[in-house]
Computed example of a mutant assay.
Amino acid sequence: MSSTERRSYPRHVVIDDGDLEFHLMGPADEAAVLAFAQKLPVHDMLFLPRNIGEAKVLSAWIKEIERGAIVSVLATRGGAVVGCGTVVRDPFSWSPHVGEIRMVISTDVRGIGVGRALSNETFALALSMGLEKLVVQMTVDQTGGIAIFEGLGFRAEALLRDHVKDLSGKTHDIVVLGHNVAQVRAQLEAYGLPEAVG
């Protein structure tokens, strides 16, 4: 994949409770990702456009990866998928310079650094793709995720009230965070620090 040539996989990262391996998701990962997604609480997936716990949705996801519209990186521990970070972009839209980061983490590995490590890796992957702006969406009660992305320089840009419905029909607000990578790069270059981003 030419868009990820600057990042090599697999990649190993040490976290609070051991280590993680990151690798790019492909067709061979479909069954493992489906098993991972089916264990996620539905509330954790409300910001995603579709329920990735459904086999047909996951098959469509794999096709989008093969087409090059989506790049997903998996976090694994002991061979099991514990997280997934995805960068989505549409080069044929009015916003080919914008990428959306989507990320989900297994409930049994929260609080030990998996979310932070995966968000850092997904952010670095997005930067290696040359995107100028990044956005991330999540429900407003996902305060841990919001804090992680704010730590990477993302800032709240929009609040979408009653934007998604859970399985019981209850509506939830979505917060949209954005990061103007091009502007930050320009500022760092002005200070003589271009390598600090990317």
Rank of each mutant, 00 (worst) to 15 (best):
L193P: 15
T122Y: 03
G178A: 00
S93G: 08
V181F: 07
K63D: 07
M45G: 02
V14S: 12
A37D: 15
D17F: 02
F36N: 13
V184T: 14
K170Q: 12
S119C: 12
S3Q: 00
L125G: 05
Y9G: 09
H23L: 11
P41V: 03
T86H: 03
L152E: 13
A28M: 02
K39E: 15
D16S: 10
L34N: 04
E30R: 15
A31P: 14
L188R: 09
A190W: 09
G79S: 07
E189D: 13
E30I: 04
K133M: 01
M25C: 12
L134P: 00
R102A: 08
Q187E: 09
R155W: 00
S59E: 12
F154Y: 13
A37W: 13
V176G: 04
F123N: 04
L34E: 05
I174Y: 07
S8H: 13
L125K: 08
I174F: 05
W61P: 08
I146E: 05
Q183T: 07
G79C: 03
G68E: 07
S3N: 09
G130C: 13
G68K: 01
R67A: 05
A80G: 08
V14N: 04
A32M: 11
Q137N: 08
L193K: 15
A158I: 14
N120M: 00
